[in-house]
Design a protein around this nucleic acid. Structure first.
Lengths: 256, 256
DNA sequence: CGTGACATTGACTAGTATCAACCAAAGTGG
DNA sequence: CCACTTTGGTTGATACTAGTCAATGTCACG
């Protein structure tokens, strides 16, 4: 709201130079500055925060958090996309969500309850768990923000349970396309994208399958089916045009 | 700097006697006094809190929160069990979780994102959403507690997504039985119950099916199968004896 | 131009849903 | 008190969705 100004004039007592440099180079102009956690903080708070963070750059494919390992850190995504997943010993995998700029990773418990992997080159802020605790005490606004984010996470989880437990393959794909459009802010929450809206889809078919509880073959067939029906177009593997969003919505919610 | 303290205190000087009486009769000796939200508060805080709450008793089967309705209240369960679910227009239903003593219901958004129904006779504390906001400002410990609870909720949701997206019917049933044992505190978190542990199962087969993303027939068949294999016993519809928990765990996590 | 990774399409199979019969326990009413 | 109904659960036969296995296609890259 009022946080667009430069940070120069507001100074915390300690570690200023390092923190300020860090904040200037990595926080103030960060892609996530007005998303998620950081959006809940003022510029001066951010400078302080920045001192507690380590800034990491990871290559695509990097597994940086693994289910069952001791939980040492928590992360805030700056840029790129991360997949969160659980796996069974025989290799079956369920992606439980995707984390983009401003999203948190690794808040729960003494152990990591989930694995996290960069899908593209990713930049992250990393905090120690102890650091998180003191941050929460230091900045109560942060706690409120975290609670909001967690609530939203729960809602998304419930929607996904409905999808995984009760929807058919075609319904899953249709639901996914619409929710992904919302995620990309192509349309407002609860609204349909306009006809012919173009979606960029950084996921592989394997990711899609593991997110929707299907196989890649079924994903492929379902997409082909929607294409044949004239509801979507697939100009390239990572792009989908939603020709008739309303028709997709009808399938997604089994209306009519 | 932050909005901490901006919401005016609603401490009503006159209503204290009423509140105190209410706390004594309904909070201090409440079944949920040392669970969930209430466990985060001191006795005197609880007295205050009690003034903001309405105490409700609902019969089994009562639908008291409906997906899509404006979110007016939030609830804290005192006794009994509540099922939370989402449904599709054609009647398909997915139960996303169960709320027992100390659990919260209805924290997210302007609309209810989920429906809630009493499974047995249930006692609840009901708060207005405005009341919740002021409570959070008044008792920061509450916010921390809520965050903890929300985190746990997210972890459970992720486990359920793995179950719904990737496990077979037999694996789902086995997983469920073990997680239900943990819920009933028959064994510590992450531990197996002892052989021959007895589980009380207030759910109908329909609830079980809608929770596990199966049909009642498949639930029934899977239970029969486990019985035939000698892994469980079913002395009555609402009781199950876990004869060989380790074998169940092997199935649940597809080990071996 | 060949190679390898990823995606699509086809043929067949398996696991779960569906449809239907049967069963047991718990009311309900004459 | 006992037939009758209702409700919820189990078991069986069959159908169908999605999974598996395999061949083919496409595209990026050396």
């Amino acid at each position: 709201m009022s946080n667009f100004g430069r940070i120069a004039s507001l100074r915390p007592p300690v570690a200023i130079n390092l923190a300020e440099r860090s904040a200037a180079s990595s926080c103030g102009d960060c892609g996530a500055r007005h998303h998620g956690m950081c959006d809940a903080l003022s510029d001066e708070e951010l400078i302080f925060l920045s001192g507690a963070a380590q800034h990491l750059s990871l290559p695509a494919g990097k597994l940086f958090m693994e289910e069952g390992e001791p939980a040492q850190y928590f992360y805030n995504v700056n840029s790129g996309t991360v997949r969160l997943f659980k796996a069974l010993p025989d290799g079956r995998r369920q992606i439980t969500g995707f984390a983009g700029p401003g999203h948190f990773i690794g808040l729960a418990g003494e152990m990591n309850m989930i694995s996290a992997e960069a899908m593209e080159p990713v930049r992250l802020c990393r905090f120690s768990r102890a650091g998180l605790r003191s941050m929460l005490t230091e900045f109560p606004a942060l706690e409120r923000k975290l609670l909001d984010v967690a609530m939203h996470e729960i809602v998304l989880g419930q929607q996904q349970m409905l999808l995984l437990g009760r929807k058919t393959a075609l319904e899953r794909i249709s639901s996914f396309l619409l929710s992904w459009a919302q995620r990309q802010e192509i349309c407002g929450p609860g609204k349909l994208p306009r006809p012919h809206a173009r979606l960029s889809l950084p996921l592989s078919r394997t990711d899609l399958a593991d997110y929707l509880g299907l196989t890649i073959e079924t994903v492929s067939r379902s997409l082909s089916h929607l294409k044949k029906q004239g509801l979507i177009e697939i100009p390239s593997i990572h792009e989908i045009v939603l020709l008739r969003p309303q028709a997709l919505a009808d399938i997604a919610e089994a209306a009519g």
